[in-house]
């Protein structure tokens, strides 16, 4: 039979000693190893990664290429407390993964996910807990998503030592985050990093927080009602016009510029009006405006 034909050489030639002469160290090619790694669970692939630098690189590659183009949204709820016990939910059009972990685990998981995957939308919910805020802010440089939304769990949260951030901006959006002032500075410092500085925009409502608390510009008020005064520094800010209408106000801090969007044409008129009206006062007030150096330049 054919089978007989096929097996004959094996039976006639196979000797145990010959067949067992297998090189002990077989270096499977990268593409084969990647295939195997993708069949492994998270713990197994992590253990494999810790064996040598080659497998570590391959494991990272497998993680990246396996998930890229698939994941659409990541949702994270980070609560307060000693242990921030929550889930990380990763979703695509086809599947949804929920990872249960403790606080450190969650944050490490998040960092790892951001480093190795491309996710279109990031939706992070935090509470006031300072630890949670710091952790989330530290994650921001790792987030490469097209849309990032960071929201406070409690809608109407506000206390004396918090800075309410309302609204959202294009890439990294904060909604009523209630950042404590130290974290606001931290967020601002991170926003200067090259990876996100080009896409870090502020809505007008948030500009007050940055101007006053972070950039040290006193008496900075952006009101929606024209009757209210607005003072700011022309030295520390740039104003851009389009066709005679203000389109953006840029707050300058050293090399770093924070762009304040014109949210409505009416808002642009208000800014223009107030800048003109208060220019004398602004010049006088300039001497009182401290310069806030970037964090790394501070003593």
């Amino acid at each position: 039979s054919n089978m007989g034909n096929a097996l004959r050489p094996l039976r006639s030639h196979k000797t145990e000693s010959e067949y067992n002469e297998v090189e002990k160290c077989i270096m499977l090619p990268d593409d084969i190893m990647l295939r195997i790694i993708r069949m492994l669970g998270l713990i197994d692939s992590a253990n494999l990664a810790a064996t040598c630098s080659r497998f570590y690189c391959l494991e990272t590659r497998a993680g990246a290429s396996n998930i890229r183009e698939e994941w659409e949204t990541i949702e994270v709820d980070i609560y307060s407390g000693i242990v921030l016990s929550k889930d990380v939910k990763l979703s695509s059009t086809r599947k949804r993964i929920i990872m249960h972990s403790n606080s450190l685990g969650t944050l490490r998981a998040l960092r790892r996910i951001f480093q190795t995957t491309a996710i279109k939308n990031v939706n992070i919910k935090v509470n006031l807990c300072e630890t949670a805020q710091r952790s989330v802010i530290d994650l921001i440089p790792n987030i490469g998503a097209a849309e990032t939304k960071i929201t406070h769990k409690i809608k109407e949260f506000s206390t004396d030592n918090t800075v309410p951030l309302i609204g959202g901006f294009k890439r990294v959006g904060y909604s009523n985050l209630g950042l404590v002032s130290g974290e606001m500075e931290r967020l601002y410092d991170i926003s200067k990093s090259p990876s996100i500085s080009n896409s870090f925009f502020l809505p007008l409502t948030d500009a007050v927080c940055f101007a006053q608390i972070v950039m040290g510009i006193n008496h900075c008020h952006f009101y929606r009602i024209m009757a209210h005064t607005m003072t700011t520094s022309r030295e520390r800010g740039k104003v851009y016009y389009t066709g005679g209408t203000l389109c953006a106000l840029v707050l300058v801090d050293g090399d770093h510029e924070t762009i304040v969007y014109r949210s409505t044409p009416k808002m642009a008129k208000i800014i223009t009006y107030n800048l003109r009206r208060n220019s004398a006062f602004v010049r006088k007030g300039l001497t009182r405006i401290p310069y806030v150096a970037p964090r790394h330049q501070r003593i």
Partner: peptide, 11 residues
């Protein structure tokens, strides 16, 4: 460093 990075999945 690797253990630190991968520790999250061992929780």
């Amino acid at each position: 460093e690797i253990r630190k990075k991968t520790a999250w999945c061992e929780d």
